[in-house]
Simulated assay, not measured.
Amino acid sequence: MYELIATSTFGLESVVAKELKSLGYEILKVENGKVVFEGDEYDIALCNIWLRTADRVLLKMAEFKAESFEELYQGTLKVNWGDLIPENGVMHIVGKSIKSKLFSVPDCQSIVKKAVVESMKRKYKKDWFEENGPVYKIEVALLKDVVTLTVDTSGPGLHKRGYRERAGEAPLKETLAAALVLLSKWDNSRMLIDPCCGSGTIAIEAALIGKNIAPGINRNFVSETWPQIPRRIWDETREYARKKINDKEVKILAYDIDGRVLKTARRNSQQAEVFEYIHFQRMPIQEFSSQKKYACVICNPPYGERIGDKESIEDIYRTMGKLYKENDTWSFFIITSNENFQRNFGKKADKNRKLYNGRIKCYYYQYFRELPKKKKE
């Protein structure tokens, strides 16, 4: 068994932990930006393919205190790196240091590389390694003089589902979009509406959730090239994921005023193989109306920081507030960095959560309504 770490954007740790619990894992620890749990080779494949809100899955190799380069070297040398890395493995070292005596990241990377190679020499009884095989990205992370050594099993971040070729002006990360949907507690028995859909990320992630499609089913991961994880494990995990896709109806409406960006949204949904579950239409939010009950509105409207002007943005927020008042069974979930959102919406949120969209600090304003009673199966 390995100790594994699912990393996350600040504020989403509990969402990632809940996802892991639903997949059957026992959580060992939840810290800022990461959730620690245990698993084997099957779990590395399963978590990379299934996790919707985590940034990547790391394999924890060691944790120890180091206030000097010698302590860093000796702590790294104690790890049997050859048990993981083959003779021809590419050892790519990255690092970060926060509030630690060893503040020079390049020096820390150099020391760790030296110690890893020395450990490999002991294992393979040779002095030189070709490094032309599978990639092992080792991170040396120092926080208050405590070193954590990990190896990345994901490769490109888990938000890179493979469906988004282009995005709008203020793109929302796929992992964050999935988290917004999960936090709303929407399910496929209700209609979901995104009135400012942009490149369609929220609608697409909702469709993947509604159909129970694993977000990483159609992409590759760096650990697929590792000899430790047999090809059949990845094949079996993907086959399992395909069998878990449900045949339930999903109702998603996605609107935007920009016809050009809607073309991108349609293309993205086709790439994600969920186009048939989303109705895209060019329409300003001011013209939108519906008689449907119990809809769930999830939206990432313009913030006023990079796109749009102040008056038109505030008008969008006021229109949303009007829709909220006119539709007393609709729930609303809006992410924005705009400080005046609640005032323009006309009501204080039942709950709000601090999140980061890239480097922009945002709040996820949540307006709950009573949900429809579930029919007995």
Rank of each mutant, 00 (worst) to 15 (best):
I204P: 02
K263A: 11
D235E: 15
K244H: 12
A241Q: 09
I245Y: 03
E165N: 15
R219D: 05
G168T: 05
A167L: 00
R238F: 11
V181H: 10
K263P: 10
D194S: 01
S199E: 01
L180T: 11
G198Q: 02
L158M: 14
A265N: 00
S223F: 05
P227N: 11
R164S: 08
L172N: 09
T153E: 03
H159R: 01
L180G: 13
L182C: 09
A214C: 12
R166L: 11
A170Y: 05
T201G: 07
N246I: 13
V261D: 02
G210Y: 01
L262E: 04
I204M: 08
L158V: 05
Q228P: 03
V147A: 08
E205K: 12
L192N: 08
A214Y: 14
I209K: 09
L182K: 15
S184P: 10
E169K: 14
D256H: 03
R242N: 10
E249V: 14
T148Y: 05
A141V: 06
E139H: 13
E174C: 08
A167I: 04
T150N: 13
R164A: 10
I245E: 08
C197G: 03
N218C: 12
T153N: 06
R260I: 13
L142Y: 12
A254E: 00
I233E: 08
L183H: 10
A178P: 04
K243I: 00
I217R: 13
T264A: 02
K211W: 01
A203F: 02
D194Q: 02
A179N: 08
K244R: 15
E169Q: 06
I202E: 06
G216N: 10
C197W: 00
T175E: 07
N220G: 14
L180C: 12
K243T: 12
R266A: 12
F221L: 13
G157M: 12
G216C: 06
M191H: 00
I229S: 08
G157C: 00
R161L: 04
N220T: 15
K185N: 13
I233R: 00
T148C: 10
V146H: 13
Y163G: 07
G155I: 06
I213P: 14
L183C: 09
L180V: 10
A214P: 10
G200P: 00
Y255C: 02
E165L: 14
